Measured scan of single mutants.
Amino acid sequence: SRSVIRSIIKSSKLNIDHKDYLLDLLNDVKGSKDLKEFHKMLTAILA
Rank of each mutant, 00 (worst) to 15 (best):
S7Q: 14
D24V: 10
L35S: 02
V29N: 03
D17H: 12
S32N: 12
R6M: 13
R6Q: 13
L14Q: 01
D20T: 15
K40M: 08
S3W: 08
I45H: 07
S11Q: 10
D24M: 14
K10S: 08
I16S: 15
I5D: 02
D28T: 14
F38N: 00
S1H: 14
E37A: 14
L25G: 01
T43G: 09
H18P: 02
L26F: 03
V4S: 10
G31A: 05
K33W: 08
I5L: 14
K40V: 10
K19M: 05
F38W: 03
S12V: 03
K13L: 08
K33D: 13
T43I: 14
L23A: 02
A47C: 06
D17Y: 05
I8E: 05
I9S: 00
L46D: 01
R2N: 08
D28F: 08
N15M: 07
L25Y: 04
L35R: 03
S3M: 14
D24H: 13
L26S: 01
K10F: 07
K10N: 09
A44T: 12
R2P: 06
N15T: 15
R2H: 12
V29S: 06
K13T: 11
V4E: 14
A44Q: 11
G31M: 05
K30V: 10
S3L: 09
L14R: 01
D24G: 13
D17G: 04
L26C: 01
V4G: 09
D20I: 15
H39E: 10
Y21H: 09
M41Q: 07
L23H: 02
L35V: 05
L35Q: 02
G31E: 06
L14Y: 04
K33R: 06
A44K: 14
T43P: 02
L26I: 03
I9G: 00
N15L: 07
S32R: 10
N15C: 05
K36M: 15
S7V: 09
K10W: 06
A47F: 08
Y21A: 09
D20E: 14
E37K: 15
L26D: 00
N27W: 04
K36I: 12
S32I: 09
N15K: 08
R2E: 08
M41A: 03
L46R: 02
L46A: 01
A44C: 06
I45S: 03
S7I: 07
D28C: 08
I5M: 09
L22K: 00
S11I: 05
K10M: 15
V29P: 03
K40Y: 07
R2D: 09
K19F: 01
S12T: 03
T43C: 09
L14A: 01
K40F: 06
L25F: 05
N15P: 15
I45R: 02
H39Q: 11
V29Y: 06
H18V: 15
Y21S: 06
S7Y: 11
